[in-house]
Amino acid sequence: MERDYITDDDEGKAVVDSNGEQIGMIAEVRSGTAYVDADPSLADTVLSKLGWSDADGDDYPLQENRIHTVTDDEVRLNEEF
């Protein structure tokens, strides 16, 4: 099922640009805003998928209007990102 909004269940998903290139990972969802880790380690990825990770100063908030679709595996961004 595809959608165009973020939920808490999206933590740990890959963030990809409109060409399908991975540019990061959702480290945390806080108050409906996704925070993207642009250079996640394996540990960051596992912790985030388990819901045990928090966004830090190196994570970037993702504006909802930049999201094209959210699938079971990834968050795909609009072309203008």
Rank of each mutant, 00 (worst) to 15 (best):
V70K: 09
A34W: 06
D59E: 01
A55I: 04
G20L: 11
M25L: 15
A38W: 01
D54P: 04
S31V: 11
W52P: 01
D17F: 01
D58R: 14
A27F: 06
N19I: 03
D10I: 11
P61R: 02
I67W: 07
G20Q: 10
E11I: 12
G57C: 10
T7S: 15
S18I: 07
G51V: 06
N19D: 11
A38E: 00
I6D: 02
E79D: 14
W52N: 11
P40V: 09
D56M: 08
D10Y: 05
V75K: 05
R3M: 00
Q22D: 00
T33Y: 02
T71D: 06
G51I: 09
A34H: 00
E2K: 15
T33M: 13
D73K: 02
T69A: 07
R30M: 03
E28Y: 03
L42N: 10
D58L: 10
D44M: 09
D56K: 11
R76V: 03
G12S: 09
V29N: 02
D59T: 09
N78C: 14
Q22S: 02
V36D: 05
A43P: 04
I6G: 08
E74I: 01
T33W: 09
E80I: 06
S31D: 15
R3C: 03
V29D: 02
D8N: 15
N78R: 15
L50E: 10
T45W: 09
W52I: 00
D9Q: 12
E64T: 14
N78W: 07
D39F: 03
L50D: 04
T69K: 12
T45D: 10
D56A: 04
L50C: 07
R76H: 06
K49G: 01
G20K: 11
S53R: 13
A43M: 12
D39Q: 01
T45K: 13
L42Q: 12
S48P: 05
D73F: 00
G12I: 04
A38K: 10
G20A: 11
G32H: 13
D39I: 07
A43W: 11
D59W: 03
I26K: 05
D59L: 09
G24F: 08
Y60M: 06
I67G: 08
D54M: 13
D72F: 01
E28C: 12
S41G: 14
E2W: 12
V15F: 07
E21L: 05
A55D: 06
G24I: 03
V70T: 06
K13L: 02
R30L: 09
D73A: 05
Y5F: 13
T45H: 02
N78S: 14
G20Y: 04
T7F: 11
H68F: 08
D59Q: 05
D10K: 09
D73Q: 02
D10G: 04
K13G: 02
R66T: 08
Y5Q: 09
R66K: 13
F81E: 10
I23R: 04
G24T: 04
D56G: 15
F81H: 14
E11D: 01
P61T: 01
E79S: 14
L50S: 00
L77T: 06
E64C: 11
Y60Q: 10
S53N: 10
S48H: 03
I26A: 02
S31N: 15
D72P: 05
T69L: 07
V29W: 06
F81S: 13
E2T: 15
D72M: 08
E79T: 13
N78T: 15
T45P: 04
V46S: 11
W52V: 03
E2N: 15
D54H: 14
P61G: 06
S31A: 15
